[in-house]
Design a binder for these strands. Structure first.
Lengths: 153, 153
DNA sequence: TTTACTGCAAATATTTTGCAATATC
DNA sequence: GATATTGCAAAATATTTGCAGTAAA
């Protein structure tokens, strides 16, 4: 995840906290930074460990509270993969992600046609800034594994 | 959710079960039908209730087993919303979400041009199933609040 | 100084598992 | 008839909550 996205995400969080009379606690920003330091999906335990590594351990309650906030702001997404619940930083500048729903591997794509439609669309009572698009499916590697499994039987 | 999607989803499930030597139990199809009868997100409890309503109650274990299967097949998706974990039929469900990064409010949109580009795109070594697109920005209400605050200072 | 937020620990909710009974193929 | 799948209940995980103490504004 690029530093640029992290900084913008922090700005979004700060804005939200300010407008909503919430406090800019170090915990919230530490969690956001930890979240954005992962390259891809992570579990709550991974996140907890990462914060310990960074000498900023937080309580389970705070972790869940903050993650809920970040999810509300769409700075983080959460979905069930084969391994269980996984989280992921999801703020980015106009990118499409190809996500394999079997192995969870993600590939960044720049799809001109999508960017083009985005640039030209008008949304009522809404100032659009940027987008992220997630394209879910199965990569050829996993497809092959699945096919092999089927044939075995 | 359209009946057409339901029928296709049932076909996908049946195919999978057949190819993988799994059994076409009435529970599996009853759960799939119940899932596709919801217009939008539902909780496990909602699903359980729906099945009781339809005189086809199933055990928790079966419910989870089947839901995991449906998620693996990408016939159902599962994500954490403000209210907790929620599930949703997702076959051919390609949505865009407009997210206000100040108040966190989200609005679901169906943007034909995006769906169209998606349908016609080809991705190398990847079988695309469906997508989610998040459009970030500021809603008119928050825009107004921010403007007022700036003027105050 | 006020009160939103944190940590802790207990409570609750959610999901998985082991095993006997059942039903599909 | 063989065995995949179900239901049940208990176990394991994951998440929320209540409350006293702490720190941001």
């Amino acid at each position: 995840m690029k530093t640029n996205s992290t900084e913008t995400a922090k700005q979004i969080l700060a804005n939200y906290l300010e407008v909503n009379n919430c406090r800019k606690t170090p915990e919230r920003f530490a969690i956001l930074e930890a979240v954005y330091s992962f390259g891809s999906y992570f579990s709550m335990q991974d996140l907890k460990n990462k914060l310990v590594e960074r000498n900023f351990p937080v309580s389970t309650a705070t972790l869940y509270n903050t993650m809920r906030l970040l999810m509300d702001l769409r700075l983080v997404l959460c979905q069930r993969l084969q391994q269980g619940m996984r989280y992921k930083a999801c703020y980015a500048d106009n990118r499409c992600y190809q996500v394999c729903t079997v192995c969870g591997k993600t590939k960044e794509l720049k799809i001109a046609d999508i960017v083009n439609v985005f640039d030209n669309m008008h949304l009522k009572r809404f100032r659009k800034d940027n987008f992220s698009m997630y394209i879910y499916g199965i990569c050829s590697t996993c497809q092959a594994v699945l096919t092999r499994q089927k044939n075995k039987k």
